[in-house]
Amino acid sequence: MADCRTTAEQAEAGRHRCAVAIGAPAVLWLTVFFLIPLGMAAVASLLTAGGYGGIEPPVTAANYLRIAGQGTFGFAPVYPLILGRSLLLGLVTTVLCLAAGLPLAFWIARLPGMFKTIGLTLVVIPFWTNLLIRTYAWQILLSPEGWVTGVARWIGLVDPGAALYPGMFAVSLCMLCDFLPFMVLPLYVSVEKLDASLVEAAADLGANRWNVFRHAIVPQIRSGLAAGVTLVFLPATGQFVIPDLLGGGKTALLGNLIQQQFGPSMDWPFGSAIAMVTLAVVLLGLWVASLMGGKQGGAELL
């Protein structure tokens, strides 16, 4: 008997070794091309810019102080404003996507049979359609002769000849359109599994609609909410393409600031510092989402 157990244990240990061996190449790859580069960026963020994208000693906290608002002549609010604007826009996008995503997810989940698959596919198609294309298309839609501008003019919201872009409105609208599928899909996965009898019980016991939603529905779809909020807020905060194409000069976000430092400004240490701040926001967001009840942000929709 003792012998038998040893072989079982040996087999288990062998399986574990085998698993580590076949998992190792991918883990190694992600370490070399993901973790180590992030580590390098963290180090670079504490150094000084040399000429032509160089990174040189001495070690300094100046890059982070710059983000916090320290300018050559005292307090300069440019960078704190960009940080605040990015967080605010991320938040606004998340709230808009929640407001639009909840009804859409419930609607699809309640469609009968075949229509459900079609409805879901209709959300998945924009999800996987090139974000760059869906973004520049808004330049057409919001130009003075664009369809959306036309409707807005007809209602009387804009003057003839005026455009709805560039600006914060265009960026928010496009963010909503680009990120809505990222909210709908995880929500749908949760809503699909919703136990309707709990909702009916709450309604039968006299709960009003808000209380039914708050106490009978939200706890059941918590993991979908957490995944959706993660998948919208985190990428939205670091967006670079949308403000770049629709924002104009006065609406730079963290992503644009990073691009500027690695592009024309050639200040890699400062760019790295902004990237690290973005990373901190991401980690904070993931932590909050895990508190909300999502174990695997986004993993469940694959």
Partner: peptide, 23 residues
């Protein structure tokens, strides 16, 4: 490993891009 897999999926791609540029 779960965390290592999750992070690249939700991280703004620009952060990953500039880190690779440095490497």
């Amino acid at each position: 490993c779960g965390r290592l897999l999750q992070l690249p999926m939700v991280m703004p791609d620009i952060v990953m891009a500039v880190a690779l540029v440095i490497l």
